[in-house]
Computed example of a mutant assay.
Amino acid sequence: MYKISFLVVDDSATIRTLVDRTLRLIFAPENVFLAEDGRAALEILRSQKVDIILSDWNMPNVNGEELLYEVRNDRALQEIPFIMMTTNGDRDFIIMAIQLGVTQYIVKPFTATEMERKIRASINVMNRRQEQRYALPEHVATLRVNKKSFSGQLLDISRTGAALTGMKFDPVIGLFRMAELELKLLDPNGLEQETSLLSGLFGRIVRLEAADTFHPTSLDFQLALYFHPGTMERDVERQLGKLIKWLASKAPDVIAED
Rank of each mutant, 00 (worst) to 15 (best):
F6D: 02
F6L: 06
V9C: 08
A13L: 10
T14R: 04
T14V: 14
I15Q: 09
I15T: 11
R16H: 07
R16D: 07
T17Q: 14
V19Q: 05
R21Q: 13
R24L: 07
R24N: 11
A28V: 10
G38H: 06
R39Q: 13
A40F: 09
A40K: 12
A41R: 02
S47H: 05
Q48V: 03
V50P: 05
D51S: 08
I53P: 00
L54V: 01
N58V: 01
N58W: 00
N58G: 00
M59T: 04
E65V: 10
L67W: 05
L68F: 05
M84P: 04
T86K: 01
T87P: 03
T87A: 12
D92R: 00
D92V: 01
D92G: 00
I94T: 01
I95K: 06
M96D: 09
M96P: 00
L100A: 12
G101D: 06
G101I: 09
T103Q: 09
Q104K: 09
Y105P: 00
Y105S: 02
V107P: 00
P109F: 02
A112R: 09
T113V: 10
I119Y: 02
S122F: 07
N124H: 13
M126N: 10
R133N: 08
P137R: 06
H139L: 07
H139S: 07
L143E: 02
F150T: 04
S151L: 13
G152K: 00
Q153S: 13
L154D: 09
L154G: 10
L155T: 13
D156H: 11
D156C: 11
I157H: 05
A162M: 08
T165I: 09
K168M: 11
F169V: 03
D170M: 08
D170G: 06
P171A: 09
V172Q: 15
L175G: 09
F176E: 15
F176R: 14
A179Q: 06
L181K: 05
L191D: 14
Q193H: 15
Q193E: 15
Q193S: 15
E194Q: 15
S199N: 09
S199D: 07
S199E: 08
I205N: 02
H215V: 12
H215F: 10
T217K: 12
D220P: 00
Q222T: 07
Q222Y: 01
Q222W: 00
L225Q: 03
F227A: 04
H228P: 01
H228K: 12
H228F: 08
T231R: 06
M232L: 11
M232H: 05
G241C: 04
L243Y: 03
I244N: 01
W246A: 13
W246E: 14
L247T: 04
A248K: 12
A248H: 11
S249P: 01
P252I: 15
D253S: 14
V254N: 11
